[in-house]
Simulated assay, not measured.
Amino acid sequence: MNWTQPSSQGDLKEEVLNLKEQPGSNILVLGSGELVRKLMKHDLVDEFRIMIFPFIWVSGKRLFTDNIKTMSLKHVYTKTLHSGAVELTYPPSKEDNVFHQGSD
């Protein structure tokens, strides 16, 4: 699967929908909160896999900001890794979700 970044944000939804129509593996986003927030805005996230690491960081960027959807998530899977990190899997519960407008 070949993908290049769309030329504008308006193309993002169309490009991701096209990718989802193609056979192959899942689309995985690692380390890009900005892209995840844009995908959430267009209701394109099928599943969140959130990793919790056994240390505390006092600063950093938030994945979920004040201007995104309020979402109900349903816990479906937990995996503990050898490092002590925990991977939690949550698909959005589409019935309860409400979008809050805000800037990106």
Rank of each mutant, 00 (worst) to 15 (best):
S25N: 11
F64G: 00
K94Q: 08
S83F: 14
K74H: 06
E15G: 03
T80Q: 08
I27C: 08
E15D: 08
F48H: 06
F53R: 05
L73T: 09
Y77A: 13
N67L: 14
V76A: 10
I68H: 11
F99L: 15
P23M: 14
P92R: 08
Q22G: 12
Y90P: 03
G31E: 07
F64N: 00
L63Y: 01
M71S: 11
M71R: 06
E47R: 03
L17E: 15
L44N: 06
G24L: 14
K94S: 00
V98N: 13
V36S: 04
K94C: 06
Q101E: 12
L88W: 02
G31D: 11
E34C: 05
P54Q: 12
S32Y: 04
I50P: 01
M71A: 10
A85T: 10
L63R: 01
D46L: 04
S83R: 15
L39S: 02
L30P: 06
G31H: 08
I27F: 13
G24M: 09
V36I: 13
P91S: 10
K79V: 00
K38M: 10
L30A: 09
L88I: 03
E87N: 05
V98Y: 09
L19P: 03
K69Q: 14
Y90W: 02
R62A: 05
G33M: 01
D43P: 00
E34T: 05
T65N: 11
M40S: 03
L30E: 13
L81H: 12
H100P: 09
